[in-house]
Simulated assay, not measured.
Amino acid sequence: MANEDPDSPARIHKGRGAASNLAGRFVPYVSSRESDGWQTEEEPLERLLTEAIEEKAKTIISSNSSPDLPFSQSINAYRGCEHGCVYCYARPSHAYMDLSPGLDFESRIFFKPNAADLLEKALRKPSYRCSPIAMGTNTDPYQPLEKDKRITRQLLEVMQRFNQPVTIVTKSQLILRDLPILAEMAQDGLAQVAISVTTLDKELKRKLEPRTAGPAARLRTIEQFSRAGVPTAVLAAPMIPALNDCELEAILEASRNAGADHAAYILLRLPHEVAPLFRQWLAAHYPQRAEHVMSLVQQSRGGRDYRSDFAQRQTGTGVFAQLLRQRFRVAIGKLGLNRRELKLDCSRFRPPPQPGDQQSLF
């Protein structure tokens, strides 16, 4: 699909989040649809199918030293995400592959079939130092493609054999497939799960996150993980000014009632191409509210659509951001969701023996 100008008329594909195939920031030219006056009716949009593309990765563990992140290691088994969340801050990564962060990001998905083998090799290196590995930090490890590819499941099986601690963030009920293995790991202090609940409004969810589980399904997922003894958080994210921020307290209360034991939130982030994509989405779905939403976003980002410095990228600045932060603190205090996240146990990490290993004499 051609890379489009951000000013091209937006047309909504059923079941997709982005309203266009906006050009990536590295593309030297773009195309734009213009009417010549002869055609009075627009041609119907073709159904946009998902293409799964195999990627042979060379490494699988990514490291970071960002001071605003609670992890130093992460794994992303997929590039792109079929969930189609229009606000996804991972969208700009598709530009590095000369693809659009728009519709390409949610319809051309790269998967890493050798991920589990790469992880095992990495964990066996003498230089490896155990710390929790985060999954779901960029794209969802339980997006629809995982049902067939089972890459996330294979990674979890490797981690369990090595007693490697893992944290997972997802908005998919597919994670329930792996509840048995995660419950076993949690008994040894090796697993934590966070379920992202963006809204309790099914209609807003359908527009904002078209191919994700509904609000009720996510709350049931929290409930089942909590009952199984897995430390389970709710991630109220992103909070979008004048769109879903009014639901913050309700999301936290519903999640606490389902069994969540702690909570976090993130203010809407609009890096690089995400900002014009989100503006297109607002114009298509909430035209009367679009100007007000973006005004509040910019008030919370120093007059811009986004600021990336570590001190404010998660929570923003300004009056609106301060009020949101205060509301969150008050709510989690009342609901008992302000307990600190449990530390996972890295002391159990042991590479399992393999054929040819020298056995210990003691």
Rank of each mutant, 00 (worst) to 15 (best):
S32H: 11
S131N: 07
Q173T: 09
P6G: 06
V30C: 08
I195W: 02
R340H: 03
L323K: 13
E34H: 12
I332K: 02
R227M: 09
S100E: 09
D357L: 13
T199K: 01
R325K: 13
I75R: 00
I222A: 06
R307T: 10
L323F: 04
L252M: 06
V230M: 04
A134N: 09
I266Y: 05
I12P: 06
I168C: 09
S172R: 00
R11K: 13
S8M: 12
L361W: 07
G302L: 15
S62L: 10
I75P: 00
K14L: 01
D36C: 12
A183E: 01
D140S: 07
I251C: 01
Q164P: 00
Q73F: 14
E106P: 08
F349P: 00
P92Y: 11
Y78D: 01
F110H: 13
P355E: 08
F310L: 06
Q322V: 07
R108C: 05
R79L: 14
G303C: 08
L118F: 13
Q312D: 00
S93W: 09
M294G: 03
P126K: 14
F71Q: 04
L118V: 11
A275N: 03
G259R: 08
A186N: 06
G37L: 05
Q173Y: 02
A242L: 15
E253M: 08
K56C: 08
S35Q: 06
A233D: 10
L48R: 05
I240Y: 05
F110T: 07
M135W: 04
A260C: 10
G84H: 02
E42C: 07
I175C: 12
P353D: 08
G316N: 09
L342H: 03
R269A: 07
S35D: 11
L69M: 13
E223T: 08
P92M: 06
